[in-house]
């Protein structure tokens, strides 16, 4: 069975193609605004090309993410929590929970034994934009995102607000103003972002478990992952291609529509 999934986030669009559960092609591009349907199509085509198959061979295309309604060729749409749950369960069998920290949204879900989701929590407004914050700060400080916050740079815990990413940016600029080194500022930003994202987990009633999968673009940053683990007291399982897990989950959810 060949399935495809598109995860159209606020910053990046991810597309994957699965054959019998294995990823055979994937692609990523910037999401955009009014050009979203075009971006979706182009990213999908790139994933197909990487997979070496034609669109006609795909049995179901499903979309998730903020841009799910901008993917006209998707036959099915699923919300991000469902996509994350499917993705985590597929990439890491035996997972009991999934956390996704993306550019715009953070979510966490406890996976059920006899149903997909036991409970879930979404980031509220004041936890929005954690990933985007890291991206824009990395660009501003001139540090590649995957190295952002790395190293042994000292971090004063309270230097950058962990209550709000907007205040955090202003605090980071103040640190620069007082002559702090870019990687020191980066370390403070990482810590603030991690504490912020961790807040989402407070809404769950189930205790932390060692089989929590971390997905989303921010999982590529080592410093952030370490800080998030420290803030939540969890050692995450991070699948390869964590950034694509949402798209994988969307693809898998498409199988549901096909079963008779």
């Amino acid at each position: 069975m060949i399935l495809a999934g598109i995860d159209m986030g606020i910053e990046a669009t991810k597309a994957v193609v699965l054959r019998d559960g294995a990823i055979i092609g994937r692609a990523k591009a910037s999401t955009g605004g009014t050009d979203r349907p075009i971006q979706a199509r182009q990213t999908y085509d790139a994933a197909l090309a990487a997979a070496g198959i034609a669109a006609i061979e795909v049995e179901a295309v499903s979309a998730t993410g903020i841009g799910k309604y901008d993917v006209p060729f998707a036959g099915r749409r699923v919300t991000e929590v469902i996509a994350a749950a499917h993705g985590a369960g597929h990439l890491c069998p035996g997972a009991t929970a999934v956390m996704s920290v993306g550019a715009g949204e953070t979510l966490i879900a406890a996976l059920g034994a006899d149903r997909l989701i036991d409970e879930y929590a979404l980031s509220q407004k004041c936890i929005a934009g954690v990933g985007l914050f890291l991206r824009t700060m990395a660009d501003r400080l001139g540090i590649p995102l995957d190295l952002f916050g790395d190293g042994e740079a000292a971090c004063v815990p309270t230097a950058v607000s962990d209550g709000c990413m907007v205040f955090a940016e202003l605090d980071a600029l103040s640190m620069l103003n007082r002559g702090a080194e870019p990687q020191t500022v980066a370390a403070a930003c990482i810590r603030a972002a991690a504490v912020r994202a961790a807040n989402t987990g407070f809404d769950l009633t189930v205790p932390n478990d060692t089989r929590t999968v971390l997905i989303g673009g921010t999982a590529k940053n080592r410093a952030f992952v370490r800080a998030l683990e420290a803030a939540m007291g969890i050692a995450f399982i991070i699948p390869a291609g964590a950034e694509y897990a949402g798209a994988v989950g969307a693809a898998i959810s498409g199988a549901k529509g096909l079963r008779k």
Partner: peptide, 20 residues
């Protein structure tokens, strides 16, 4: 002012979907 209507609809979809 702060009610994001689209997001509320998305959250309702998520809520219902999570319950099957």
């Amino acid at each position: 002012v702060d009610l994001d209507e689209k997001r509320l609809i998305d959250q309702l979809d998520t809520w219902m979907e999570s319950l099957g």
